[in-house]
Design a protein around this nucleic acid. Sequence first.
DNA 1: CTGTTAGCGCCTTCAC
DNA 2: GTGAAGGCGCTAACAG
Lengths: 342, 342
Amino acid sequence: MSERRKLTLKDIAKELGISISTASRALKAHPDIAEETIQLVKDYAAKHNYVPNIIAVNFRKSRTKNIGLIVPELVHHFFSTVISGAIDEAKKSGYNILVSQSNDHLTDEIIACRTMMASSVDGLLISISNETFEGDHILEFVDEGKPVIQFDKVLEKLSIPQVIVDDFEGGYQATKHLIENGYSRIAHIAGRKDVLNACERLKGYKQALNDHQLPVLEEYIIHCESISEEEGEIFMDRLLALPNPPDAVFCITDLVALGVFKTLKKRAIRIPDQVAIVGFSNWKLAEIVTPSLTSVDQHGYKMGVEAIRMLIQKLDNKEYEIPEKIELKTALVIRESSVKST
Amino acid sequence: MSERRKLTLKDIAKELGISISTASRALKAHPDIAEETIQLVKDYAAKHNYVPNIIAVNFRKSRTKNIGLIVPELVHHFFSTVISGAIDEAKKSGYNILVSQSNDHLTDEIIACRTMMASSVDGLLISISNETFEGDHILEFVDEGKPVIQFDKVLEKLSIPQVIVDDFEGGYQATKHLIENGYSRIAHIAGRKDVLNACERLKGYKQALNDHQLPVLEEYIIHCESISEEEGEIFMDRLLALPNPPDAVFCITDLVALGVFKTLKKRAIRIPDQVAIVGFSNWKLAEIVTPSLTSVDQHGYKMGVEAIRMLIQKLDNKEYEIPEKIELKTALVIRESSVKST
DNA sequence: CTGTTAGCGCCTTCAC
DNA sequence: GTGAAGGCGCTAACAG
């Protein structure tokens, strides 16, 4: 079993009575090595199953073939989907994905970045935490000449390429869908004011109302802090307490929508006949709840794939133009929670 | 900005008029270097923020400080929880986690293993696919002298250390709980006969019935193939068609339980008054469904932590004994689906 | 066509 | 207390 030392080029060279470099070149079928030498070496290598020492190769080429990937939270349907896409795509080019999480804390994110840097990944994919408003720790990568791609949650001012979803469009579509299905008093339980994605969704919501001659009412817009189920419950209660309560709610994310469900059920308010709901992200739970939840899909897998592609193109230094920003279209998945049964 | 070449030991040595080896030793505060030299070097290094080239260090030590982690499916609540624990724990010892997935296919698993091997991880954590009954691809790691730890879904015959959950106990507790809550005709929608975890849960179920003088009825036990929501629906229908249908169902996993929910709701059968349900894994969905689902928690995060600990102990070659098998206890999380409202 | 040489950056005997 | 030298495994420029 173990401890048979791995075969090296040196061993092959000695055994075959050739030089190390010839052996090296033969294995790569270098054009000016004799065909028969190539065969000789390749056969020997195959027979003794020679495997090049990757650590040495990487050292020589000063790279690792590893790509760092930092997300706010790993145990999260959307992000795990992105990771899944990133892994599958990276594999195709022989890259590995090294995952880390920030738990939505800036300090953790900075540590994760430094660790990634220390372990010498060739490049980085990052989706920033809710607490990240400065990106010096991210720029350190760029300063080292390592490419970085932001995805989903991005820091606009960094001027680092990004792969995002069209949150504005998503918000617009969700709201438009509600309007077209006969709802007119549409509230929005929004995200944090300081998070870009949330702002875009809010803008989309407002624009859709405007485009359909509906008023934008400030009392219909409530901003979350923790983006939790509890907030959904509480804020829905608050909305219902209004003199003129809404007949539909567009929620910043499915989890919040779930809280809204709870409040409505507790009060025996029928969904979608009395109040309609649309979520965002299209988590697994959207299909599970009763009634099932209409939600805006963000194409997480695709986002992972595209982000990796962009990064690998930069790494491999292909000459053709690489777009600095990819904006994926959202897809509204219409289910029961937003379509009246009549 | 970029392209300022990184500082090396050589640079420091030249600058300070000392030799490379002295610089190297000084940075590690080697005992027989003069205190003042140490200060000199350390100060210089700090001032010019010298960072050792990890790739070179790893090459020298022929290791990577990377640990491979292969799961059947990344986008899966339980596994992402395990990964999360593994990452957090590995970080503490300066190890990185390199994630890959098999999609529950043997071929993909083999490829993932080879890729991991090629990229030279120092060790491997693996949870096998449903199609894995031979483990030569896993043994290749061991042959290379790289430690491997199995977790959750393991191949018993490999005699490779494992971290698992006590599935037998989980099945036993779930069934016992149902019995104690007044249910006596308890069915089990089981997993595949060829998957160890599923067999253990089934054994636990049977044992609990035996211990409480209840008969084990073959018609109450149905084996899944794909472990899907659809199967839950179909099999529940089948169970209800029995002359003497069950009054409770213990499901191999929460997803299957969800299918059971659907069938019961479709037929307007009240949960848990007419039929009780217990799931397994305690996914997020268990708290979300109505009524909420009683489920057996597998402590995924802890499993990730323990598996990494075990592996790192092997890597760091600590001399004290390392248990070859850690069996975590399950925890029954009692919710509404299994407790009569009376 | 093939071999020699010179590193990549770091660590570690072995001398002095 | 410090330095010189060799080598980890592989690649590539430079000679023949």
